[in-house]
């Protein structure tokens, strides 16, 4: 077991955001967090690497309590890819990826550091952009650079916050392929928040449905990607097609009644 989340609660001030989250992730597993906006996907990711501090509960990373690790130690175990890269001061792609080596570098950049970065740029097909300014890249290229930075941390787990939201079809597939193949080859666990249920279904070993601060369903895509779950979590009527191996959903219509029900429930 590489990650164990036990009865985790989190709130912003007095507003609870996550309640009673319990989750286990294995080495090499790709886990996607799905659920409507505001269901707590991003917050859960940030609780896993100390960006946010849970109110209750524990997060164990390789058996160690995350809240007791120092940041540098944690940064060697866990790589994080934020939702969208902010505009930075002019900085080359190589320099940005090199920052992933920060947890290992004291002052001098070693030859090995440079080799790791060079290797990642090649893996990502970014070698021609090595000395280009990061700000000039396209959205897909930027996303790849940020993923490369997380890889450069040589982490045991990867946390990706909606890595495909702003990408075109080709980049979406490329990015997800990279993440899942790395997970399989290196035994890295990847936890990814996502909106696209079909993409999630295709690439994940485990899907976690979050609804109103809690885990609603958890399991393999075949188990949990059902019309019932989609209706309950998203309030959308959908059909699920299983012809192509993995379940594939076609959304039909938002449910007025269930929306109203959900509204009264929260009130």
């Amino acid at each position: 077991m590489i990650i164990e989340v036990k009865r985790l609660h989190f709130s912003y001030g007095h507003r609870p955001v996550l309640e009673d989250i319990t989750l286990e992730v294995e080495k090499g597993e790709v886990v996607t967090l799905v659920g409507p906006n505001g269901s707590g996907k991003t917050t859960l990711l940030k609780c896993l690497n100390k960006i946010l501090k849970p109110k209750k509960g524990t997060v164990l990373l390789m058996g160690k309590d995350v809240s007791k690790m120092n940041l540098k130690e944690l940064a060697r175990l866990s790589g994080y890819v934020p939702q969208n890269g902010v505009r930075t001061f002019p900085s080359t792609v190589f320099d940005i990826v090199l920052l992933g080596r920060r947890p290992y570098i004291d002052w001098r950049v070693s030859s090995r550091d440079k080799e790791i970065v060079a290797g990642l740029l090649r893996l990502m097909g970014l070698e021609e952009m090595a000395l280009r300014d990061f700000n000039e890249l396209s959205g897909g290229e930027k996303q790849k650079v940020l993923i490369a930075r997380a890889f450069a941390q040589e982490p045991e787990i990867l946390l990706l916050d909606e890595p495909t939201s702003n990408l075109d079809l080709k980049h979406q597939l490329e990015v997800m392929n990279l993440v899942s193949s790395t997970a399989k080859e290196k035994g890295v666990a990847a936890i990814i928040s996502m909106h696209d249920l079909n993409l999630a279904s295709r690439f994940s070993d485990k899907m976690v449905f979050l609804r109103e601060r809690r885990i609603y369903a958890i399991g393999s895509p075949e188990e949990v990607l059902t019309p019932d779950n989609v209706r309950a979590v998203y309030g959308v009527e959908a059909v699920v097609n299983k012809d192509s191996g993995r379940p594939y959903i076609i959304p039909l219509e938002p449910l007025q009644a269930s929306k109203a029900a959900a509204a009264t429930k929260t009130a």
Binding site: A75, G79, Y80, T88, L99, G100, P103, Q153, L159
Partner: peptide
């Protein structure tokens, strides 16, 4: 190169 969150993660 990024926000405080990225800094924390690094």
């Amino acid at each position: 190169s990024g926000g405080d969150e990225v800094a924390t993660s690094l």
